[in-house]
Computed example of a mutant assay.
Amino acid sequence: MTIISQSADVALEPLARLAHHAWRIRRFALRMGEVQGQGYVGQALGWADVLATAYCHAMKVRPHDPLWDGRDRFLLSHGHYAIALYAALIEARIIPESELQTYGSDDSRLPMSGMASYTPGMEMSGGSLGQGLPIGVGMALALRMKNNPAWVFNSMSDGELDEGSTWEAAMSAAHHKLGNLIALVDLNKQQADGNSHEILDFEPLVDKWQAFGWYVQRVDGNDLAAVLAAFDQAMALTDAKPRVILFDTLMGKGVDFLETREKNHFIRVEPDEWQAAINVLDANYHANCEKGTH
């Protein structure tokens, strides 16, 4: 089933509906960031369009049964993106919106890094980069052995392209013809230590993934029409090969003064700036609605 948010039950065109979900996911992330006064909010804003498409269009989930065997699996390999996934899980009604006020607090189900033992809908505990794709390969193999038609989506950062385990898993996925595995790579071009290409240049990525035997697409990850088409194309492919979608994204997307920060890998802002960020996000969203650009 496709999940529609409670506030979006009105009839909307598909792109407008997804834009609505993405706006709410960004808003939830900002509200959680305000609770701690800091966080990986830039990534959440940049990745929101992909998460909205995954959870509100592509994936089969049951909000009140997150361990349903027929669900599609979404692996958050980059565990520091937990704030982004929590926002999507709230929008998908798997986690109550009221819990966002507990983000990062003692005994919360929403710790600052993704922990499968704490959070409904969290399929793996992320942290050390490069673990998600190997786990995804194992899950995809197991599902195929069980004749379970569920998909495995592995959400990962461009920093994980520096990890040898990622490329070992990529070879294994192609060797085993895992057509039920889709890797989603956030190419925001930033890592904790600097620009991704300066840390370890990984281009040309399309050529590399193709050489490893994957079906590859590269799109603007903040263009909802392109994101939607990429998901649909990956899931419609009949070839028995794994798929990867490379998404070029902008950290801080939707909040102008966060988009242009020199360093927004981990964001700390003044207390009054959180509401300012929400105001800018809301204004940009409603302006785009009036222009009909959603």
Rank of each mutant, 00 (worst) to 15 (best):
Q36K: 13
P149S: 02
L184S: 03
E160Q: 06
L51T: 06
V269R: 09
D256Q: 13
V280Q: 14
Y55K: 06
S155R: 04
G252H: 10
G130L: 05
L143D: 08
E13Y: 03
E99R: 09
E290K: 12
R17G: 04
G254M: 10
A234E: 08
A116K: 05
R268T: 14
E13S: 11
I94L: 05
Q190K: 08
V35D: 09
A183P: 02
G70C: 01
K189L: 00
A88V: 07
F74T: 02
D193N: 02
L76A: 01
K241S: 14
A192D: 00
W209E: 08
W68G: 12
A140R: 08
R62M: 05
E99A: 10
V50E: 01
L76R: 08
P111L: 03
K60H: 12
D232M: 03
R93S: 11
D239F: 04
R31F: 01
T2V: 15
L200V: 00
A173T: 11
G121W: 02
P120D: 01
N154G: 03
G254F: 04
A11D: 15
A229R: 12
I83P: 07
Q191T: 02
A84P: 08
K208D: 05
L178I: 10
L76T: 03
G292S: 09
E262S: 08
H57I: 01
E198K: 00
L187K: 12
G37P: 12
G179H: 15
L187M: 10
E91K: 05
Y103Q: 09
C56P: 07
M139K: 04
E270M: 11
S113P: 00
A283Y: 00
H78I: 00
V206S: 13
I267D: 11
W274L: 07
A88N: 11
S105E: 13
